[in-house]
Each structure stands twice: as C-alpha cells, then as structure tokens.
Nucleic acid binder design. Structure first.
Length: 310
DNA sequence: CTCCAGGTGG
DNA sequence: CCACCTGGAG
C-alpha cells in the first residue's frame, strides 16, 4: 500500500484490510473483486491485483510459506527490488539495500547526485550508493535499525522542502549542504505537458438501481466498476440500443476533472431517468447495482463522488 | 487552480 | 521509456 502512497492515506485502508485478511491464506481465498473493494479509493489498483496474485502464489508454492530472501521475495508480483529488500531486511535481517523516494533524496543530497532520480542512469548510480552504504553487520538484528533509520532520515529530517540540516547526523559530509544546494537536489522531474481526454458517463437510474461496467485489466481502473462511457451524441438512443432502457429525461451534472500521471480526464456525467427496462441477458462485465450499495463496490474515486450526488 | 510525491511492470 | 491514481500542499 505504501508504494507510491503516503502513510496518512494508507492507515485506514491498512487496518480494514488486515481485519478482513489477517493472513495470506485469507487473502488468497478471497475474490479479486473483494480485494479491490477494500482497495477502492487508494489508487494504483494493479497493486491490489498483484498483492492478491502474490498471496495465491505463496499458498500454491511448494512450501506454502512466505519466501525468506530478497531474491525470492522479488519474484512475487508487484514486489520490486526496493520492496523486496525492505521486507528481507526487516523480517529476516538480510543485508539488502532499499531505495524508496525518501532514500533517493537523502543519497542525492549527501553525494551530490545530479539529474532526475527516475532517469535510468541516475537510478543506477543511486543503487550503487545504496549498496555501498550498507553496514557490515555483526548480527541480522542490526539491519532493522539501519534500514528504518535511513528511511526516517529522509521522511523526517531530509525533507523535500526546508530540510532539518541542523538535526542531520550526516550534515558535515553532505555535498548539497556544503554547496548550498539542498533546494536543487534532487533535481525535479522534467516538466511535460500532458493531454486532456474527455469522456461522457451515463448514470442510469431505474428503481433505485444503476448500471456499471467492469474495466479490463491491465489498464486504467482495471478490475474496477465504472459508469458506462459513451461517445455518441444521443443518450436516449444509446440507452435504448445498449441497455434496453427507455428514458423519461436526462440532465448533465457539472464537469468532473480527474488527474492521472500522464493525462487529465474531463468527465461529463449524464443522469438518465429510466422509465422502462427491456428484459435481456446482461452482458458479462456489466451489472446493475442498488444505488445505496454501489459506493461499497470496487469503484474509483470519481465514481464514488458521482454516486454521492445521485 | 496547479504541482507534486510516490515503486513496479511492461 | 511510459503507464498507473489520489490526496495534499501551495
């Protein structure tokens, strides 16, 4: 959950998640849809799908036990080099280097690493430094304090703005500090203009029900339920042809904007009042939900917002 | 409103 | 290299 997400946003999700899935077996036995329900609103839903897959992979593995080395842990879906190292260091005392966003900032400043962390060349340089800095431990227990200390240094002292250099244990050896460049290091992400996409969403209302469609994975909101999108001109004709629904009226709600990493989505919500629904087999991946319960399904934030307005 | 943080996988 | 989401800061 903490991959690409800050602690404050995670805590509530983490507690609800562990209440429902107290161990790997419980997670493995659950459906992907239920896992996504508990992840709904947290974003980056591939993490949830991967976590679920990882639980099943562990349960189905020969020993049925959680892998105990960084190299083995990294084979799990959704677990990369840094997360694998963090688990191995904290749980098994392995001498493995982590490199999360906070640590990258500490290293970039302390060693004066130029360039944007994320550029592959800079990334490689940071990994070399992270490995080289690992302490020569006498016992596995020592890895915890080192790893936690490094992460906390970045999270609480070597912060992005206004770092607390006066409190920093490595201030005297810090390149950024010595050259007065703590504000310039690490280099910011190169700016890039990103496009706006538009989408019209149909919010059908019929006897306290609404229809949603399951997005394919991978892709945006993969595995989540989203209002049907349509690109046509005429909601009345579209609803009849696609959903067998006769409308008495339809109205637009205010434009809803949602930002992604690489584009911005402008959602035009169209509330459609259905008076008559033709009986027909539901296509797979499309379902009617009671409006009152829809918000507890696996839905992304904009859908949640719109449900609150219905 | 805009900008930004934050790892993994393809 | 790019795709993937959201909330908080400014």
């Amino acid at each position: 959950m903490l991959q690409q997400t800050q602690v404050g946003a995670v805590i509530g999700y983490f507690q609800r998640f562990l209440d429902r899935f107290p161990d790997i077996g419980a997670l493995a036995r659950a459906s992907e849809d239920e896992v996504l329900q508990l992840w709904s609103g947290l974003g980056y839903y591939a993490r949830a799908r991967n976590l679920h897959k990882a639980a099943r992979a562990i349960v189905d593995s020969p020993g049925g036990r959680f892998p105990s080395t960084a190299a083995q842990i990294e084979l799990l879906p959704g677990v990369g080099r840094s997360t694998a190292a963090a688990i191995a260091a904290f749980c098994f005392g392995e001498r493995a280097a982590i490199l999360d966003g906070n640590v990258k900032r500490v290293l970039a400043r302390r060693f004066g690493v130029e360039g944007f962390p994320g550029a592959s060349k800079v990334e490689a340089e940071l990994w070399v430094l992270a490995e080289r800095l690992l302490p020569n431990i006498a016992a596995p227990e020592e890895m915890e304090a080192y790893t936690q200390g490094l992460m906390d240094l970045g999270a609480t002292v070597c912060t992005r703005s206004a770092p607390g250099c006066a409190l920093c244990p490595v201030a005297t050896e810090c390149v950024a500090r010595a050259t007065g460049r703590t504000a310039e290091l690490p280099a910011p992400r190169p700016k890039k203009a990103y496009p706006t996409r538009e989408a019209a969403w149909l919010l059908l209302r019929y006897r306290g029900l609404t229809v949603m469609e399951k997005r394919p994975a991978p892709g945006i909101w993969g595995g989540l339920w989203v209002f049907p999108e349509f690109g046509g001109e005429d909601p009345i004709r579209h609803c009849l042809a696609e959903f067998g629904c006769e409308l008495s009226s339809h109205r637009e709600l205010p434009l809803l904007r949602h930002g992604f990493t690489h584009f911005r989505l402008e959602i035009r919500p169209i509330v459609c009042e259905v008076v008559k629904r033709e009986r027909r087999a539901e296509s797979p991946g499309r379902a009617w939900f009671p409006l009152k319960e829809a918000a507890s399904e696996a839905v992304p934030v904009p859908v949640r917002k719109l449900l609150a307005m219905l």
